[in-house]
Design a protein around this nucleic acid. Structure first.
Lengths: 163, 163
DNA sequence: AGCGATTAGTTGCTTAAAGCAACTAATATG
DNA sequence: CATATTAGTTGCTTTAAGCAACTAATCGCT
């Protein structure tokens, strides 16, 4: 029966929604400008993404950032103009232009990284060391749970215990 | 020494940032339009807030939503025009106009609520009942940890156990 | 009571973020 | 080789949001 656990599920849903509200407010996720305000959230995300996937193409970037074609083009143009990103020429396919950070771009990303870390540290501020560890582990665990994409149809056979 | 635990802290910060990236992406928290796209995020938040604090004043709303005076005024005007919100006349102070949801507004909020719950259920989809409970508890716990605002200077004396 | 100071909300105007659609250049395909 | 498809760009528009000047009501003071 598909609705077997409906009642219990509702409480869980509410708990998670409560967490979302709290968390988004707490992290300033709805602020339009990122961190120190030198970049919009999207601009910063583009930088990060190029930093962590050098040679990424605009198309791929567009998919991970889930933004429009034209808008991305402009964001990139700006980053290039500001000397943070370099658009290299692909040998294989001259339509695409693999993107890389320049040295200045890497410095900028490092700076944003530091800024972000500082914010998180502020968040951790009120906690003693023990609770920090606890929180980090909690969230890691939550993430692994959430990362599961599909419920297996059949319970995996429990592995024979190795004695 | 203030830097005593610098090394350990760094790993925790990284864990939390990883969670942030994952979670925001997973929940579509950076989408500009909320849920079914009939409201902007701010518009929806205004509705929710009025729903949960009937009679709230624009000023108070402005503070919780952290948006501009003029913009809020327009958001409210739209909600009123659409028959979702009613701006009553305050007897005490005729400058302010306590806000309420209309019946249609309440229906709308209920609908958004259902929509949101549906999304979360989708998120829970892959998990079996045991793991759902686990996840909900994890996030609740994380929230209580994060809700602490200040580290007490001195450990609070443990209360005398009541026998 | 009367008048300047303050407060709640509105309106006009501007800016920034983002989307849409038409376009160009390069490549793939039959 | 001609047509279809793809990567990215450009012109134009829309939407979300901010700023500052304004109105109306209330407060605080003498």
């Amino acid at each position: 029966m598909i609705h077997a656990n409906r009642g219990e599920t509702r409480g869980q849903v509410e708990a998670i929604r409560a967490f979302n509200r709290f968390y988004t407010a707490r992290l300033g996720l709805l602020r339009r400008r990122h961190l120190d305000g030198r970049f919009s959230l999207t601009e910063a995300r583009a930088l990060f993404e190029i930093g962590s996937r050098p040679g990424v193409t605009a198309k791929a970037l567009r998919e991970t950032l889930e933004i429009d074609n034209g808008y991305l083009s402009r964001v990139l143009k700006q980053h290039v103009r500001d000397g943070l990103v370099r658009a290299t020429a692909s040998r294989a396919d001259r339509r695409e232009k693999p993107l890389m950070l320049t040295a200045a771009g890497r410095r900028e990303v490092a700076h944003l990284d530091a800024e972000s870390a500082r914010m998180i540290e502020e968040l951790l501020g009120p906690l003693d060391q023990e609770r920090r560890v606890e929180l980090a582990q909690l969230l890691e665990h939550a993430q692994t749970l959430l990362a599961r994409r599909e419920r297996p149809r059949v319970r995996i056979e429990r592995l024979r215990r190795v004695e």
